[in-house]
């Protein structure tokens, strides 16, 4: 690899808060690294562990799940259910050797465009530091 390592990051964002927050970052023209590609779900409560594992299996170096702040979930408590599940998935990716640091759960509201950009920038840097996941992405 001559060019520096560019991590591949998959994001899952809920329609009501974080996806809207990402849109707001756009409308406000706040810049962040292009490594993340977002897949929209209605709620983080829809993010089944398999989405995370499949992402890593397909070569993602990092996965970000973003949803509404506690109490703000459009479906009452999908985000809290997700948080509980992500705790286990983090341990799972830990013992698999993927590393917990490659999986992030963040709360970003629809009004936090700046925060969305910050989270993505910071997470991208973190994953860049960690280097490529020695899975498929290495080729």
């Amino acid at each position: 690899m001559n060019k520096g390592f560019e991590p591949n990051i998959v994001g899952f964002a809920c329609n009501w808060c974080s996806y809207a927050g990402a849109d707001l970052a756009g409308t406000s023209r706040i810049k962040y690294p292009p490594n993340i590609k977002i897949i929209r779900v209605m709620c983080t409560g829809r993010v089944t562990p398999a989405f995370i594992l499949k992402s890593f299996q397909n070569g993602a170096d990092g996965v970000l799940v973003a949803g509404c702040h506690p109490g703000d979930c459009h479906y009452i408590a999908g985000n809290l259910k997700c948080e509980k599940i992500m705790d286990v998935v983090k341990r799972l990716v830990g013992i698999l050797g993927i590393g917990k640091e490659r999986l992030r759960l963040e709360w970003v509201s629809a009004s936090e465009g700046g925060r969305f950009a910050d989270v993505v920038t910071e997470f991208t840097e973190q994953v860049r530091e960690l280097g490529p996941l020695s899975g498929k992405s290495q080729g």
């Binding site: 897949i39 709620c43 829809r46 089944t48 398999a50 499949k54 479906y75």
Partner: peptide, 26 residues
């Protein structure tokens, strides 16, 4: 309401969440 929480909870994939099916997201 279509949040999808049930589909995540279902152990044997009996539930499909329309428009956000597992296959579609995979």
């Amino acid at each position: 309401k279509g949040c999808g929480a049930c589909a995540v909870a279902c152990p044997c994939r009996a539930i499909s969440m329309k428009h956000f099916k597992n296959e579609q997201i995979f």
